[in-house]
Design a protein around this nucleic acid. Structure first.
Length: 107
DNA sequence: GTGTTGACAATCA
DNA sequence: CTGATTGCCAACA
């Protein structure tokens, strides 16, 4: 139908937001992990979705594969990590999350 | 349809 | 750490 679900985002975007929303506090996922978890698109598409629609989810729980948070949000992300008890490798810029322990695999 | 850019990833120097 | 390079996928001019 005609329609376009103007209130609902694209299916892919909705799926990305759903996964991010499912990440428990103290845990994180990398852009590539989410892309692989969904099985479609790529890490860049995940980043783009968060850049556009990420305002309603815990975007700080999504970072690069090496544990560095998104650009322009390092300070905000660091505050969240310390508040939620995310294992950090460096509590000071460059902020780095201990991916080995904080990485969440949907489990 | 082509080329550029991007909240990416991995490798090499 | 910085920089360059390649691979990946989608949006945009």
């Amino acid at each position: 139908m005609a329609g376009s679900d103007s209130r609902l985002v694209d299916e892919y975007s909705g799926r990305v937001l759903d996964v991010v929303d499912a990440i428990p506090p103290g845990q994180v996922m990398s852009y590539g992990d989410i892309a692989d978890y969904l099985g479609t698109g790529g890490p860049r598409q995940v980043g783009r979705v968060l850049a556009v629609y990420g305002g309603g989810v815990a975007w700080w729980r999504v970072l690069h594969a090496d544990g560095t948070p998104a650009p322009g949000h390092e300070a905000a992300a660091l505050a969240r990590y310390q508040a939620e008890g995310t294992p950090l490798r460096s509590a000071r810029p460059p902020v780095r999350v201990d991916m080995r322990r904080a990485r969440w695999s949907g489990r």
